[in-house]
């Protein structure tokens, strides 16, 4: 132990140092030991679509979080926001990979992320709208993390082993996201007059997009993972935070659907097109290339 280099002593404590890195040789497979065989009573096409729904939510929100990079209100928040983005990106990768296994197409995570057209993206509209200011982003994160955390707890009993594994791991990550978003909602809501105004405006703006997270798609119903059950506990949890932040729980009506369809059906806002154009641009410039 070298006493004048604290981090050397810290480094000594790990036997799998490499596993800590997002890259490097020792990357630990999060699905290690998980039986990836499809359960016989689960429809592969349905499971694939469901994995795309949850995977796209995580993927698109991580892209929005990434847009904060070099623009955060303080350097400590740069690190925190990147962490949230990395967690969601990690979940998206597992879920999209599973989607390609489930439907038997053998498509990988990148096939889904880079080569699907917009109308095949299944994310809710909440995650795709532009970032707005920090209060708006915090409001969106609060809604998403609260709802997704609750869903992952529910999915700990899902019919698919990979989905279960993602949910168990993701629930811990989402608990942190919720803690982060809650803390900032309180600070902004109960901070200065201006920040309270911004936080309220942020909540009012994202509120109409919340309902989609509780509106079941036929695929979800067939898989027995009805998100309707989340509505009450999530609304109660949100109301508690918003009240503690001395703000008003918005009463705005849900954003209208189009002919009964919305994000889960591949019908989006105008925000998704430009996001994907940027996201997919390099990959599409080099068809067939590996990176």
């Amino acid at each position: 132990m070298t006493d004048d280099h604290v981090y050397l002593t810290l480094a000594e404590s790990d036997h799998e140092a490499e596993a800590r890195w997002a890259y490097g040789t020792g990357f630990a497979d999060p699905l290690l030991g998980v039986d990836t065989a499809l359960a016989p009573d689960v429809d592969g096409a349905d499971l694939s679509l469901y994995c795309q729904m949850l995977g796209d939510d995580a993927l698109i929100l991580s892209q929005r979080l990434i847009e904060w990079c070099t623009r955060a209100p303080e350097l400590e928040e740069e690190v925190a926001l990147a962490n949230l983005g990395l967690d969601l990106l990690g979940q998206a990768r597992l879920l999209l990979s599973r989607a390609g296994q489930a439907d038997g197409s053998g498509r990988g995570e990148d096939d889904f992320a880079y080569w699907r057209p917009e109308h095949e993206f299944r994310n809710v509209r909440l995650v795709e709208v532009a970032n707005g200011d920090f209060a708006f982003s915090v409001a969106r994160l609060l809604l998403f993390a609260t709802a997704r955390g609750a869903l992952y707890e529910l999915l700990a009993g899902a019919p698919d082993p990979v989905l279960r594994a993602v949910a168990v791991r993701g629930a811990k990550e989402l608990a942190y996201h919720q803690e982060y978003a809650t803390a900032w909602t309180l600070r902004l809501g109960d901070g200065t007059a201006y920040s309270a105004e911004r936080m309220q405006a942020g909540l009012d703006a994202v509120w109409p997009l919340l309902d989609e997270l509780f509106t079941p798609h036929e695929v979800e119903l067939r898989l027995g993972v009805d998100p309707t059950a989340l509505r009450e506990p999530v609304l109660a949890a949100l109301a508690e935070v918003i009240t503690e932040a001395r703000l008003t729980v918005p009463t705005a009506l849900p954003l209208a659907r189009i002919g009964g369809r919305a994000g889960r059906d591949g019908v989006h806002t105008e925000a998704l097109g430009p996001l994907l154009a940027e996201f997919q641009s390099v990959a599409r410039e080099h068809p067939g290339a590996t990176w």
């Binding site: 480094a11 303080e74 400590e76």
Partner: peptide, 23 residues
């Protein structure tokens, strides 16, 4: 690190100084 309150300090410390599970 800099933080406005204890809670923020703890979260930021987790992100910054134990980003690779050093603690």
């Amino acid at each position: 690190l800099h933080a406005a309150d204890d809670r923020m300090a703890l979260l930021a410390a987790r992100d910054l100084y134990t980003r690779r599970n050093e603690g």
